[in-house]
Design a protein around this nucleic acid. Structure first.
Length: 280
DNA sequence: TCCCAGGCTTGGT
DNA sequence: ACCAAGCATGGG
């Protein structure tokens, strides 16, 4: 089995990072090993002191692809300072959230995979989201072998566009089948160009993403944050609404959350949802 | 034009 | 029966 070892920066906890709901194809075991499919590789990540063991890729691939994927090139001291500046002026909630959530990083996931994944996430729970995505990969993705086991890549836009609504539905998507089809058709047909979106300002990018059926403000902002690394994107869901009412009842200026407001959102989300024993 | 309520698949509890 | 990191839809 291929293996790489890299220096682990501060503020990185693989389990928290993959457990905070931004990624649906990874699972962690009791040894703190976190494993899942990235592109056409199955990788496992394990933190050992100030080192990070990465299995499934060689040293150069780990440094070139996995380090940016994990967001390890981002300076989280700087990130945290900016977050404290923008959220600390209201009260001390963000400092507590930062402490509890320390180690969460925003991944650089594939744009297309993130888009489909968060369409599936609506009105759904994480356990079921994961199962649906796995079935979609098994049925429409490309198989690849690694260490004697078979894994499946996330299907391409054209693969899903040609899958047929009934076959998408058969993966357990429920009413979201038509949303996935619309999304796959628009992306494979070029009507939606994800690389073009990555060059747009956040407002235009949101508008463009929301022209896909089943993509509203919450899904679009999650896709921008997790798939486009728009760390200023601040998804507002039921949990964050609760946080805003509970800790920021006199309101916060959503137009002044800084360049890393989305990371603050993750801290607050994790703080509120997982501090009292966690969810599924 | 904007706002709001009820519906939507499915599996877990 | 109720709920889940929401959204499209139709009526007012």
């Amino acid at each position: 089995m291929k293996k790489a070892v890299i220096d682990c920066p501060c503020h990185f906890d693989p389990q928290k990072t993959f457990d905070c709901g931004q990624c649906f194809r990874f699972n962690s075991d009791e040894n703190g090993m976190v494993s899942g499919v990235v592109g056409n590789r199955y990788i496992s990540v394990q933190k050992c002191g100030d080192k990070l063991n990465i299995y499934g890729v060689g040293q150069s691939e780990a440094e070139e692809k996995i380090v940016p994927y994990l967001g390890l090139d981002e300076d989280y001291d700087k990130v945290n300072r900016d977050i404290e500046e923008h959220f600390g002026k209201y009260n001390d909630t963000i400092f507590k959230a930062e402490q509890v959530s320390d180690g969460i990083r925003i991944l650089r996931q594939d744009k297309w995979e993130t888009l489909v994944s968060f369409i599936i996430s609506q009105n759904n729970n994480i356990g079921r989201i994961k199962k649906i995505i796995e079935r979609i990969c098994e049925r429409f993705g490309e198989p690849f072998e690694q260490d004697g086991k078979t894994y499946y890549s996330f299907p391409t836009p054209s693969s899903l566009a040609g899958a047929g609504k009934e076959n998408i539905f058969a993966c357990g998507t429920g009413f979201r089948d038509k949303y996935i089809v619309d999304c796959a058709e628009k992306v494979s047909g070029g009507e939606i160009d994800l690389e073009e979106i990555s060059r747009m300002n956040t407002f235009d990018a949101m508008e463009k993403l929301m022209s896909i059926k089943g993509v509203g403000p919450k899904v679009a902002s999650c896709v921008l944050l997790f798939g486009f690394h728009r760390t200023e994107s601040f998804p507002i869901d039921v949990w964050i609404k609760r946080v805003l009412e509970k800790y920021y009842s006199s309101g916060i200026d959503l137009n002044d959350i800084g360049n890393y407001g989305g990371i603050a959102q993750q801290y607050l989300f994790y703080y509120e949802r997982y501090k009292s024993g966690g969810a599924n």
